[in-house]
Design a protein around this nucleic acid. Structure first.
Lengths: 192, 192
DNA sequence: GAATATCGTTGAATATCCTAAACGCGTGGA
DNA sequence: TCCACGCGTTTAGGATATTCAACGATATTC
């Protein structure tokens, strides 16, 4: 599915990116140039990576599509085809004895979203040093209880209770209860 | 919390954006310039919106932080303060008799992620006409069973099973079982 | 309180981008 | 066939961005 365009890197190669987007929307260089109020020559040079456009002119061009700068840089050209997964098909990503983290789908670049089913055995503790990364994350406790620390805030969450925070705030998960805790969490952009 | 910087638009005002990001990471113009291999003057001019940087130089600058172009344009500067939520504090967003959809946190603009706890009563059916929107979504069945249709694919998901698809593909959820089905789902960008 | 250091800003020179107008190429119609 | 049309590309020159070096302002040190 999607367009057969493999070698398009994420951040670099603005030229290919613009060309692909333009073609997806069925526009010629001249047509896009007309809509955007720039010249076709400029678009040609940009698509060949012979120049690196200024933000202002790139924005003008994208406005002609129309597409936001954020969408332009975020766009994902290689979505996965797989839709359904059994419990066993979830990808195990943690290699700790007391914590199981299983990702819905395979590890894939360019997704908007990562969802995990996590199981914390009694006494399990992530520690608070390692967990800092970009993005935001969210979770709901399904069974058991989990002590969640986010920055200076801490709380014991019981089934049905939830959290939402920015991932760059240091955070820590601990199961101080007697039974295993099942947590379903999501993060965006995906960490794994 | 966060920095007191309200009037920062999303796509425009690259200058304020860069300045804010730089300050969040605790860098001076000169220090960032040194890391990025550009001059402090250039950063000064960009932050004042007196020039519109080329993608290449903006990328060089962001590499000095480091931060990707996609993250730079996607970054959200108005996160919510609330972190923890009880089951009752989840925001009810569906107004259907047979389906309950409760959002973690309040409806908020500019989040990366939306997470829902959904309960489908036996016989509940979303229909397949209304559900089309941007983004990607993902879910795990917690209890009961749910018949999920995505495009031409259909499957009955049992507890622990999951789905992941692009939201612009028509999709439908039905509970054809005898007991209520609890589903935890996430979508990005958030629909609510 | 002067000397020093560092911050962000500015002006002139240089490097880079964008426009305007051509070019070469393929296609389809008189 | 030959001309007209539209495509993406190229080149010269004007417009814009970036560098380099200096400047004033604000702390900090002696």
């Amino acid at each position: 599915m999607s367009l057969a365009l493999q070698g398009v890197q994420m951040s670099d190669d603005i030229g290919s990116r613009l060309k692909l987007v333009r073609q997806i929307f069925g526009l010629t260089q001249r047509e896009l140039a007309r809509r955007a109020g720039v010249t076709n020559g400029a678009i040609s040079l940009i698509e060949q990576n012979r120049v690196s456009p200024s933000i202002s002119s790139l924005k003008k061009i994208l406005d002609g599509i129309p597409l936001s700068l954020a969408d332009f840089f975020t766009l994902n050209f290689s979505p996965s085809d797989e839709v359904f997964f059994t419990a066993e098909e979830l990808t195990e990503i943690a290699h700790l004895p007391e914590i199981s983290m299983r990702l819905v789908g395979r590890r894939a670049k360019g997704r908007a979203l990562g969802m995990l089913r996590e199981v914390y055995q009694p006494g399990a503790d992530t520690g608070d040093t390692m967990l800092r990364h970009e993005g935001e994350e969210c979770g709901i406790v399904v069974s058991g209880s989990l002590t969640v620390t986010v920055g200076v805030q801490e709380r014991v969450l019981n089934p049905g209770e939830a959290y939402y925070f920015r991932s760059d705030i240091p955070h820590r998960f601990r199961n101080q209860g007697a039974e295993p805790c099942v947590l379903i969490s999501a993060n965006s952009p995906p960490t794994f």
